[in-house]
Structure formats: structure tokens, C-alpha cells
Amino acid sequence: MSWPEPPAPETYVLRLFVAGATLRSQRAISHLRHICNEHLPGRFDLEVVDVYTNPEATLEYQIVATPTLVKVRPEPPRKIIGDLSDHGRVMRGLNITAGGGISEAVQ
């Protein structure tokens, strides 16, 4: 008797809203790329949205602050506000449980 195969891990759909190419925006982008590459290798769909050039998107996702990372999928939807410098908090927010082993950022 064997356990059924676990379902294939879902692809993470992420949207990162930033306001222009500020230092804070760049910081958020690099932190996020680092986390994704390390913990979600090959299974994330990340799109960076500049609220200045795409204001309608703020309405759709109810964005009130920048930077905001929106986890569109998997459910439940989740928003992480800030420059994502606290990796542990970001991972908790994204519900990533050491998919690629425990990251050094968790400690």
C-alpha cells in the first residue's frame, strides 16, 4: 500500500507593484528575485508592475502601498507590503515551506 503521489507543486503567480524605478523598488525586486530563484526555482511567474504607467492595475488588485507583492496563486491571495527585506516574513506570507531546503534567510 502506497501513498498517492503528491500533486505537482503549483506554479506561483506573483505580481510586484512598485512606484517608479526608485531605490526602494529596486531593492524589492532584487529581494524577490533572490527568494524565488532560491525557493521556487522554475515554478514562479513574476511580473513587476509600475503603478505610474499602469494605474488601472492598482484598482484591480486594490493596491494601497508600494512596494506590494501580490500572491495571485496559489490560493489564498496574499499581499506583502514593503521592500521585502525580511525574507522569513516574505516566505511565511507566500506560504513557502522550504521547497528548496531551508534558506539562510529564515534563520
Binding site: 507593484f17 512606484a19 526602494r24 531593492r27 524589492a28 529581494h31 503603478v51 505610474y52 494605474p55 488601472e56 492598482t58 484598482l59 493596491i63 494601497v64 502601498a65 508600494t66 512596494p67 506590494t68 489564498p76 491571495p77 496574499r78 499581499k79 506583502i80 507590503i81 514593503g82 521592500d83 521585502l84 527585506s85 525580511d86 516574513r89 516574505v90 511565511r92 506570507g93
Partner: peptide, 19 residues
Amino acid sequence: EIEVSGDYDFEPIFVRLGY
């Protein structure tokens, strides 16, 4: 639904209002 991690501002409010 919100988790805060690091610095932020409320620029999207300004963007939305301006829009």
C-alpha cells in the same frame, strides 16, 4: 491579507487618486 516586510509608502493611493 496583508503582511508587512520592510519599507513602503502609499504612492498607489496618489496614483489612483490622480488617475
